[in-house]
């Protein structure tokens, strides 16, 4: 099994295309970070204490003037407490440090999804298109193992992109903002208590949450790749639903069953904000839906890949 994954990795990483994707990933991060840094620079003025004080006043204003509901009220109060903690303990806010840029960069994770879809769409279909599948499947390794090794290799490629994102964004923002705040903790309110968290851990938590959606979309691409044996169809369709998903959700929001749609559940951060897509959706509901989709996609790939005749 290890050998099979090594083979798939060899086929991925000994192609120029793969390195172009990784280079593109790095280039997008560098460019994006530079643009963000440039914008923030002009917005920055008198230093973080002044800015936090201004923010605190803003929350106070809202609390007094806009007669918020209970939920918002607690949220505003929490924000004020967090700011006070920053000021009291002389811990500067993320604003204007490398962490601002690094955390924002997590949003570029969509590129990981797209680039991994490209690899996923190709990884099975290309073997059929070039005819190499015939030599691949006449070895003493059953088809399920071969399919699994491809799936693992595809996820590994996604991880490589994720590390690229992490390393490049840390380096780039370090260079732009300076590395002096690298040890800055994340101050936040959890269950009514102020806690200091490790920024890196928090970042990876965000990565992993975003990663759930990535895994789902690349699994779709992988499934189409093994069912229809066409890279173009797989890549086109997967990227299509990646972008159409949210539009579709908007359109179907009024139907209660739309909560069973894949797209309604891929973003688990909706539970962190406490604003799920449909009322009554819970974290465990979404995880359940995701697991069902995940198993279904993989089962379809598996059945189609192992049962069908190879006539390529």
């Amino acid at each position: 099994m290890v050998n099979l994954v090594l083979n798939e990795n060899m086929k991925i990483f000994r192609r120029a295309r793969t390195w172009i994707l990784i280079a593109l990933m790095a280039a997008f991060v560098i460019f994006g970070n530079f643009v963000m840094w440039n914008e923030n620079k002009s917005a920055q003025g008198e230093g973080w204490q002044t800015e936090l004080t201004q923010q605190k006043e803003m929350w106070n204003d809202r609390l007094k003037n806009s007669s918020p509901d209970d939920e918002s009220q607690t949220y505003y109060k929490e924000q004020i407490e967090v700011i006070d903690y920053h000021l009291e303990h002389n811990i500067r806010s993320e604003q204007g440090t490398m962490w601002n840029g690094i955390n924002e960069s997590a949003g570029l994770g969509i590129l990981i999804t797209i680039f991994t879809i490209i690899i996923a769409g190709d990884i099975v279909a290309a073997e059929f298109a070039t005819g190499t599948i015939k030599l691949l499947l006449i070895r003493p390794a059953n088809r399920l193992k071969i399919l699994l090794s491809k799936y693992i290799a595809m996820l590994l490629f996604g991880l490589v992109l994720l590390f690229t994102l992490f390393v490049v964004s840390v380096l780039m923002n370090g260079i732009l903002y300076g590395f002096k705040d690298i040890g800055l903790p994340l101050v936040s309110m959890i269950n009514g208590h102020i806690v200091e968290q490790n920024m890196v851990l928090n970042l990876w938590k965000t990565y992993m949450l975003n990663g759930i959606a990535t895994v789902m979309y690349v699994t779709i691409a992988f499934m189409i790749s093994s069912v229809f044996r066409s890279s173009a169809m797989s890549i086109g369709f997967s990227i299509g639903i990646l972008f159409a998903g949210n539009i579709l959700l908007e359109a179907l929001h009024r139907y209660e069953w739309s909560k069973y749609l894949l797209f309604a559940n891929t973003d688990l951060t909706q539970y962190l904000d406490g604003r799920p897509f449909q009322d009554g959706m819970t974290l465990s509901f979404s995880i359940g839906v995701l697991v069902v989709y995940f198993l279904a996609f993989n089962l379809i790939s598996w059945l189609m890949f192992t049962r069908r005749d190879v006539t390529a």
Partner: peptide, 14 residues
């Protein structure tokens, strides 16, 4: 078994 089924299609980029 060792086989060539139709043309020997290899990975061209390797």
């Amino acid at each position: 078994v060792g086989a060539i089924v139709e043309n020997p299609e290899m990975y061209k980029y390797l």
